[in-house]
Simulated scan of single mutants.
Amino acid sequence: MSLFWRIFLLNAAVLLVAMLLLLLGPVTVSTPVLFTEAMIMIGGLAAMLVANAVLLRVGLAPLKRLTRAMTTTDLLRPGPRPAVTGHGGIADLIETFNSMLDRLEAERGDSAARALTAQEDERRRVAQELHDEVGQTLTAVLLELKRVADHAPAPVRDELRQVQETTRGSLDEIRRIARRLRPGDLEQLGLISALKALTTEISGHSDLTVRRRFDPDLPELGEEAELVVYRVAQEAITNTARHAGARNLELALTRTDDGVRLRIRDDGRGLGAATEGAGIRGMRERALLVGAELVVGPGPEGGTEVRLHVPTGSR
């Protein structure tokens, strides 16, 4: 029975009882009203209000839980669904809401997968062009500068040597950007080698002191799951180097009972009251693609800690 009919029938029953008492019982209403008559009327009104309050409290409790779920639901942080309780239309409403969440999460997952796949393809294309086009052009410029410098007068030769060093530095930077766009170490040498190269590169270009720990018996992860672990580590380390003001960073890749856990911890200023930016949201979207769980928060001794748990069997 729907909530409307239950409230309506309860009110009708109370009013019917009151009418029968007035019609068939010894109770009458005098003018002016006697004390006993007033007490009976007040008692009937109180009984009706209490009955309505109890029914509404019990009947609308599932709606309060549904309202709380509506205000706290985040598609990037899937949580338990509201329990399908209540009667009539309330249970149908909660079930419809849960079905809508399932559909929205599935659609968001599909769209995020397509967007991230397109992003990886674009990164691969840009990295290839940087390596093949810009890299080869700068290499040719370096060779030409060397040839000219070998035949140039001494004052000009020194200036050409400086131009060579600048060009060589630009070539190294382009190669570094290309490696970040397309992690060749991940494809050729595996996840651990790619993470070692990533931390070595970041420590060489910043003041961070990096400590690494890798369990020796890590389970096999799928290609997509390894890419997710690498990209999450890359984003977390980049955020630490750029924004955290940290001096030390720890990266650990360990085995769990049902998968692999990546943990990145720094001693920087922490997140504070700042809202999550596009980088962290991107990490959450990547984690959802492989059924992983991502937690970003303060570390046990300050700073920021990023934990990614990837279950075994991820793609």
Score class of each variant (00 low, 15 high):
residue 110 D to T: 13
residue 208 L to P: 14
residue 124 R to Y: 03
residue 47 A to N: 09
residue 238 T to C: 01
residue 266 D to C: 12
residue 126 V to F: 09
residue 308 L to Q: 13
residue 189 L to W: 02
residue 307 R to H: 07
residue 312 T to H: 01
residue 291 G to H: 06
residue 192 I to F: 00
residue 261 R to D: 11
residue 169 G to D: 14
residue 274 A to S: 13
residue 98 N to E: 05
residue 166 T to S: 09
residue 202 I to T: 14
residue 309 H to V: 07
residue 72 T to L: 14
residue 176 R to T: 14
residue 109 G to D: 12
residue 10 L to I: 07
residue 66 L to E: 09
residue 140 A to Y: 10
residue 47 A to H: 04
residue 100 M to G: 00
residue 3 L to S: 06
residue 271 L to H: 14
residue 273 A to I: 03
residue 63 L to N: 04
residue 9 L to Q: 04
residue 175 R to D: 06
residue 58 V to C: 05
residue 312 T to C: 06
residue 270 G to I: 13
residue 209 T to Q: 04
residue 53 A to E: 06
residue 210 V to N: 04
residue 244 A to N: 13
residue 88 G to D: 13
residue 200 T to L: 07
residue 140 A to C: 06
residue 21 L to W: 12
residue 155 P to A: 09
residue 91 A to M: 02
residue 271 L to C: 14
residue 151 H to R: 12
residue 2 S to K: 08
residue 70 M to N: 02
residue 161 R to H: 12
residue 133 E to Q: 08
residue 204 G to K: 11
residue 45 L to G: 07
residue 166 T to F: 12
residue 254 T to F: 00
residue 260 V to Q: 02
residue 127 A to L: 02
residue 221 L to G: 03
residue 284 R to D: 00
residue 249 L to R: 00
residue 291 G to P: 13
residue 24 L to Y: 08
residue 109 G to W: 05
